[in-house]
Design a protein around this nucleic acid. Structure first.
Lengths: 115, 115
DNA sequence: CCAATGCATATCAATATGGGTATACAATTT
DNA sequence: AAATTGTATACCCATATTGATATGCATTGG
């Protein structure tokens, strides 16, 4: 048996650095393929391929706009990853650091309310 | 070019479900290989192989104890993953849910203080 | 209607995976 | 010292990946 398909789940899809870059870029908002091609400095077919993988695990959505295809982030697909690692967090963080982070979360929360 | 090695980084190492199971098991504490063999229901050579990958990315440490090899979790190796997904968290969570989680974190924190 | 633009897909190569099985090695026990 | 237990490593196979390149298809412009 070979390694699990990259489309098997978000864990596999996101193991590829370029795909993480794509997702990172999409946090800025919807983008057509060529934007990503430029941003990543990859050949267009590669970007399309990566986007396909991301689409198959539900990490991005597409929308046709004229002859462009606009890709948009679908962050919920990353939740399983978050949930899994999050359960390890207390193991590497000391108590005080943990508290700090929680307080930071609260601050972030407030900032968002202002937005 | 082929896919990145599973030992390339924690992202790749952890993309394999069995390796996540191993890490999950190790949250309970140090364990010899055969314990994991039983827990996972995998052949011993496979478990050893998975452990090697996890060792190479720093996710576990080993210690020889008699003829056993005791593996222990090294959770800090997962921090990069956490940090990456965490930045997406606010994108999938609604404000109220976020607040709830923060409160839950606080509660967890208190519980740990009691431990 | 034909050309051009924006993407997607197909194909080829090189690679390394994960599982199976056999075997080597190390520490213990008898 | 020989046998046993606990692990690691070597080798085989089938598979699917990433990158390159060429090509197909759809939408829009002239």
């Amino acid at each position: 048996m070979a390694r699990a398909a990259t489309t098997a789940d978000a864990f596999n899809a996101v193991a590829e650095p370029r795909r993480r870059e794509i997702l990172d870029a999409l946090t800025q908002g919807e983008r057509p393929v060529n934007d990503l091609v430029e941003l990543l400095g990859l050949a267009q077919p590669h970007v399309s391929r990566h986007l396909r993988v991301l689409r198959e695990v539900g990490a991005v959505d597409v929308r046709g706009e004229g002859r462009q295809r606009l890709y948009r982030l679908n962050p919920q697909a990353l939740k399983p990853i978050h949930d899994w690692v999050a359960s390890y967090r207390h193991l590497w963080e000391e108590r005080f650091e943990l508290l700090e982070d929680v307080l930071e979360d609260l601050k972030d929360e407030e900032n968002q309310q202002d937005t």
